[in-house]
Design a binder for these strands. Structure first.
Lengths: 133, 133
DNA sequence: TCCTAAAATAGGAATCATTACTGTTTTGCA
DNA sequence: TGCAAAACAGTAATGATTCCTATTTTAGGA
């Protein structure tokens, strides 16, 4: 099925590009509704899935049971704070090597990769130093 | 709260140790029920979560919307076939370096890591070579 | 510019994995 | 053995996501 333009999809993609905090579908919905009050949640989900399927955004699961979305499709990792739940980007130069090595030792075909680090972010450490251990 | 022994939890952990395919809670439930017919699904979920919280097993999300569980707590990666959905283990020697490097460049505290590769497994490639591209 | 089929939408219902609740049973220590 | 804490079974509730349908929008051709 050919993909046709839709204002809603454009707004969703644009919004995601402005955000570096990997919002959930619901956060996208609530924000888009500010300027497009009768967009439906189903439309948000449908378009987020469509954009992810087309590789224009990334859908990521970080263990909190909710999908997060990221307009940055470059090869990078994520860090998830188990205290405040914040999801932040981490850039690595060794990801490519790792990817290549994985393809070497694996007999199937590898298309993509997703790496998540878990821990406590600096802000939460400063608030509760006992997390440092 | 102190953790007390429970036969159900023991069975769940034992079952998970015998499986290398990272079953979901529902698969665990259906299998345990073979020898413990009136175990409840809630008990399975509660114990899987408890075991994961205590670090005795790993809970992992691979993008299919369902949690998977792994009794192998060693530092390793996973591969997910987007065709058949199979989740398999991948062992890497560069994971430790990556972890160390991540801790160096990151100002917070990193506790754990989860890496997933996505693609098509050998079995599915053999069946449908067009996936090779 | 108008016409039309395909695609997309809004709104709401349905699904389904997971969690919460409650009365009963089990565990483990004294 | 007695008892309080923990765990259980069974079931209801939650909540993220998907599905459904009638209506609207898009885009290409006459």
């Amino acid at each position: 099925m050919a993909v046709k333009y839709s204002r809603q999809r454009q707004m969703i993609h644009n919004f995601l590009i402005t955000r570096k905090d990997h919002p959930t579908a619901d956060v996208v919905y609530k924000n888009i509704r500010q300027e497009c009050p009768n967009i439906s949640l189903g439309t948000v989900y449908r378009n987020l899935t469509l954009l992810a399927d087309r590789g224009e955004i990334i859908k990521l699961q970080v263990g909190d049971g909710v999908d997060h979305f990221d307009a940055d499709t470059s090869n990078h990792c994520h860090f998830v704070c188990s205290d405040c739940g914040a999801v932040t980007d981490m850039y690595f130069d060794c990801l490519e090597e790792m990817f290549a090595k994985a393809q070497q030792i694996f007999s199937g075909k590898i298309n993509s990769q997703n790496t998540c680090f878990f821990g406590v972010c600096k802000e939460c450490l400063d608030k509760s130093p006992e997390n440092m251990e």
